[in-house]
Design a binder for these strands. Structure first.
Lengths: 229, 229
DNA sequence: CGTATTCTTGACTTATATCAATGTCGGTGG
DNA sequence: CCACCGACATTGATATAAGTCAAGAATACG
């Protein structure tokens, strides 16, 4: 399948890679259009590929034994995801669902060690990527350990605005479908509590809600809350 | 400084590395004995080295702006730690304190990219290490999102018993000094709640407490609690 | 010994979950 | 095109897990 090289070039992971190396990489890649709501891979499924998100937005969810769901992370364009093999796993630990029309690149997992060995720069960058993810996880742990719900929700919304926000008349629109339940699963609370919090913020003019919609109208206001009232 | 090679060989990261490669690595390494209670590096300090724990036990803590402390992780023998550079940071995100007499190896951070480029296997293994750490973080996030305190404490104690337990008459001893406060900082709760929980478990014969001591007497009992009563 | 941590335990408070009911939006198909 | 249905959201009332406040006991250490 033919893949637009300029789109790839815009991704930090590949921006300084020599042409030939990049071509070698793309040779083995396949791309796929993923419509809103469809899954890229599912929790427990055999990890046959690793992926790169070129365009769109995904959420990675996990379901616990007793049926509770959490959102492990949101995948943004340029992010590697589903690299279970690099974590020495054979199955995917979560389910990746498109929350906006998306475009992915994928490679067979067998090629991962190969790529890494032949391309040390890729290895270093990939490690940095995973490292950043680790830091994000630690931030989340820290917030869940020390902050109350409202602050956590504020932090989460601000991060979404930063990573997935589109400037719009009146504020920053979160650029994909996101429900109260989703926000609850990202912050470790219930949709009821999130709903109450967003309602309160709406009264204060900080945000504007809507069905699976969110518009941040006053970033400073939220930052005040995030930093502990 | 002369370093015992057999000790290094026992560590998975290096077990299958050619002798010459290992020597090249050890050439640039320095080892240090860290007495109980001393720090290896401190939060915010310039990341000048990365480390490997050969022997002993460390805890890595973080202090938030408003002075609350959490334990990010416990470092066990064989673990890499303080590899801030791999995460493209210039400072250490936390403080590493010896909770038992310890022995570390360290390398100047500048050598990290060098090592990785010259030793692809090391790169892959290091990535797996970070990957595992990421998974552990996700487990913790999942537990904090979905489980109540008692279950989380049970999970944490069981993990400690598994990773840092020494068989002993009557049960499995957690092999380093650990306070109620420490357990609280690992599970996102308060020392009071931990104290009450451990007291209750002691009455049930699951554990035996003591000042900065913990003995797991009934692993199955704890596992029942961990899995949701 | 006495002084400082660490731990325990009780009483009380509170944030947040749970339970329950109703409202609203938006897409589907008749 | 409108009506209806299902998914999503709001909001109130109530329950409760866990935090906070407070005091004292146990243990280690110099």
């Amino acid at each position: 399948m033919k893949i637009d090289r300029s789109l790839i070039r815009s991704i930090p992971l590949f921006d300084r890679m020599p042409d030939e190396e990049l071509d070698r990489l793309l040779q083995h890649a396949s791309s796929r259009r993923v419509p809103q709501g469809e899954t890229v891979f599912e929790q427990g499924g055999t990890a046959s590929s690793f992926y790169l998100l070129l365009h769109g937005r995904l959420k990675v969810t996990q379901v616990t034994e007793d049926g509770q769901q959490i959102i492990v992370r949101v995948v943004h364009p340029g992010d590697l995801f589903g690299f279970a093999k690099a974590l020495q796993r054979t199955d995917y630990p979560g389910t990746a669902i498109a929350v906006a029309e998306s475009l992915t690149l994928s490679w067979p997992t067998e090629l991962w060690p190969n790529f890494v060995e032949h391309n040390p720069r890729l290895a270093v960058t990939a490690m940095q990527t995973i490292g950043q993810r680790l830091e994000e996880a630690h931030v989340r742990i820290r917030e869940m350990s020390t902050e109350e719900v409202e602050r956590r929700v504020a932090h989460t919304v601000l991060r979404l605005a930063k990573k997935a926000g589109r400037q719009e008349a009146g504020g920053i629109r979160i650029d994909f479908l996101i429900s109260r339940q989703d926000i609850a699963e990202m912050t470790g609370t219930t949709l009821h509590t999130v709903s109450r919090i967003l309602s309160a913020w709406e009264k204060l003019g900080f945000v504007e809600g809507g069905r699976q919609k969110l518009l941040v109208k006053d970033q400073n206001g939220l930052e005040t809350i995030a930093s502990g009232s």
